[in-house]
Design a protein around this nucleic acid. Structure first.
Length: 454
RNA sequence: GGCUAGGUGGCAGAGUGGUUAUGCAGCGGCCUGCAAAGCCGUGUACCUCGGUUCGACUCCGGGCCUAGCCUCCA
C-alpha cells in the first residue's frame, strides 16, 4: 500500500506518487516572526514534521523546506513600537520559535529559507510576471492581474465573479480586478525597503513562498502544506504567480491543509484574543503532553484545546512511561505495522495512537520485553516516548518544593510504623504527603514516590 | 449571500454497508495491611426525516445545528 494523502485540490485521498522518488519535495508555510507562536501555529509544525518523518521512511531523500517570513508589516509595527530594527524582532521570535518547537519534538526542516535572503529571487520573479503581462504597475505598486490566469480559484473552489459580489473589503481603485493582489509595494524612508526596478520597496505577502519554493525545491514540487486559512488567498495566489511565472501546468501536486486549534469551539486567533502561547503552556506542561494532544485528533479536523485534554494526555503518557520504566531492557525492535499503516493513511494519528495503546496493553499484560521495545520504537515514529522514563517522571519532581531528604525521612518513618503494624500512623504520613502532592507506592522493592499529576 | 468541513457512548476521538476502535472517567475483580500504580473484565454510541439495500451509524436526497474561509491569520 502506498502512502495516501488527502489532496485539497481534488478533495479526496490519493496515493502519493512523487515526481522523482529519489528526491521528494515538501514545502510548508512557516511562521511570520513578530511574536511568540501559539498552539495553533504549532499544529502544522508538528504535523508536517511528522509527515516528513513518514515520507523519509519510504524515500531516500525528502527535502523539506519550511520558511521563515521575516519581512512583513506586522514585524514593522512591532519594531517601530519598540524602536528597534526589524532584524531584532525577527531574530528574537525566530529563536523563540525554534526553542518552542524543539520542546514539542519538532525536528528541523531540511532547509529554512528566509524571505530577506531571497529578495533577488523575488524581484526576478515579479519582473518576469510584469514582462509576461501577468502583472502591472499602479501607483507605485506591482499587482498580479488575476484576469490573466483562468485557473484562478481552482484550489479554493471560488468563482472570481462571485468573489466580487461577496467582497467585504473595499477594493483599491487602482486594481483592474478586485482579486488582484500586491507583489511589490513601495516603502517610505522609515520602513525597510530594497531597491527594485519599481523603486525602493518590499515584497507583498504571497510572493516569498513562491520564490523560495522555486529556488530550493524547483518549479513543480510534490507537496505544499499549511493551515486551512491559507487556502485562500495565500495558496491560491501562490499557484497563480508560480504557474504564470514558470509557465507550468502544476505548481504543487498535493496540497495539504491542517484544521484549526479551537478554544470553546472557536478558532484560536490573535484578533479574538483567545490564543494560548506555546511559550507559556510549556511552563505548565511538558512539551510531550502538548505534542500528544496535537496528535490526538486527525490533522484535518478541528482540535478543541482544554485543560481536560491535557490532563488526559498526561495520564496516558504516565501509563506508557510507567511501562517503559518497569519493563524496558533497552533492546531494539521494529515498529508496530498498524502504527505505520495508520500514519501512511493520510497521517491518521488517532488510529496510530489507538494501535500504540494496543501494543502497550500487550506489553503490560505479559512480561514480554519485546512488546515493550516495540512500544518504544512505535512511539518514536510519532515523536513520543523518546526520553528516558525516569526523566519523564523526574521533571514533575523538580516542580515540587519539598526537599528529597525530607521525603525520604518520612518514608523511613512510615516504614518503621508499618513494621510495628501501626497502620494508623503509617497512613497519616502517607496522607500528609499526598496532600502535598507526593504519591507513595509500595512495591516488592520497597516504597517509591513520585509527584502527583495536576 | 457564495464556498468548505463536521454532527459518534459521560468526555475526547477514529472507523466501517452486516463482526472489539482507542484514550480519559465510571463500575466489578486480581494484587495490597489498606491504598496508589499496574493488570483483567465491563457500556444494544452513531443529529433528524425520507430513500437505496436482504441489511445503513456507514451510500443518496431534504431538514436542523455547529465551526471555518470569503479581511491579517496555522
Amino acid at each position: 500500500m502506498s502512502i495516501q494523502i488527502y489532496n485539497t485540490l481534488s478533495r479526496r485521498k490519493e496515493p502519493f506518487v512523487p515526481i522523482d522518488p529519489q528526491r521528494v519535495t515538501l514545502y510548508a508555510c512557516g511562521p511570520t516572526v513578530y511574536n511568540y507562536a501559539h498552539i495553533g501555529n504549532a499544529r502544522p509544525a508538528v504535523i508536517f514534521d511528522l509527515l516528513h518523518r513518514v515520507l523519509s521512511r519510504r524515500f531516500p531523500q525528502v527535502i523539506y523546506a519550511r520558511n521563515i517570513t521575516d519581512v512583513d508589516d506586522k514585524i514593522n509595527q512591532t519594531a517601530a513600537a519598540e524602536g528597534v530594527p526589524i532584524e531584532v524582532i525577527s531574530r528574537r521570535y525566530a529563536e523563540a520559535y525554534h526553542a518552542d518547537m524543539e520542546q514539542l519534538g519538532v525536528g528541523r526542516p531540511t532547509i529554512e529559507p528566509r524571505a530577506t535572503d531571497h529578495i533577488t529571487e523575488i524581484i526576478g520573479m515579479i519582473d518576469q510576471l510584469v514582462d509576461q503581462g501577468h502583472a502591472y504597475l499602479a501607483e507605485g505598486h506591482v499587482l498580479f492581474d488575476v484576469g490573466t490566469f483562468p485557473d484562478y480559484g481552482q484550489l479554493s473552489r471560488r468563482d472570481r465573479r462571485e468573489m466580487i459580489a461577496g467582497a467585504r473589503v473595499e477594493v483599491a481603485p487602482y486594481k483592474r480586478n478586485p482579486g488582484d493582489f500586491v507583489l511589490w509595494k513601495p516603502s517610505p524612508e522609515n520602513l525597510p525597503g530594497w531597491d527594485s526596478p519599481w523603486g525602493r520597496g518590499r515584497p507583498g505577502w504571497h510572493i516569498e513562498c513562491s520564490a523560495m519554493s522555486a529556488a530550493h525545491l524547483g518549479e513543480t514540487i510534490d507537496i505544499h502544506a499549511g493551515g486551512q486559512d491559507l487556502v485562500f488567498p495565500h495558496h491560491e495566489n501562490e499557484i497563480a504567480q508560480s504557474r504564470c511565472a514558470h509557465g507550468t501546468e502544476v505548481f504543487a501536486r498535493y496540497w495539504m491543509h491542517n484544521g484549526f486549534v479551537t478554544v470553546d469551539k472557536r478558532k484560536m486567533s490573535k484578533s479574538l484574543g483567545n490564543t494560548l502561547v506555546v511559550h507559556e503552556l510549556l511552563k505548565q506542561w511538558p512539551g510531550e503532553v502538548l505534542r500528544y494532544v496535537l496528535l490526538s485528533a486527525h490533522y484535518r479536523q478541528p482540535l478543541d484545546w482544554s485543560d481536560k485534554v491535557l490532563e488526559q494526555a498526561q495520564t496516558t503518557l504516565d501509563r506508557l512511561y510507567g511501562l517503559l520504566r518497569e519493563h524496558d531492557d533497552g533492546r531494539a525492535a521494529e515498529a508496530d505495522p498498524d502504527v505505520i499503516a495508520a500514519l501512511e493513511d493520510d497521517l491518521n494519528t488517532p488510529t496510530a495512537l489507538a494501535a500504540l495503546n494496543r501494543v502497550a496493553r500487550h506489553a503490560g499484560s505479559g512480561t514480554s520485553t519485546e512488546a515493550v521495545a516495540c512500544l518504544r520504537a512505535s512511539a518514536g515514529i510519532l515523536g513520543l516516548l523518546l526520553q528516558p522514563a525516569d526523566a519523564w517522571f523526574d521533571q514533575r519532581k523538580a516542580e515540587t518544593d519539598l526537599d528529597e531528604p525530607e521525603i525520604e525521612a518520612l518514608i523511613k518513618a512510615r516504614q518503621a510504623a508499618r513494621a510495628e503494624r501501626d497502620f494508623g500512623r503509617a497512613d497519616r504520613i502517607r496522607d500528609d504527603l499526598a496532600a502535598r502532592g507526593i504519591l507513595l507506592k509500595d512495591g516488592p522493592e520497597g516504597t517509591t514516590w513520585e509527584a502527583a499529576s495536576k
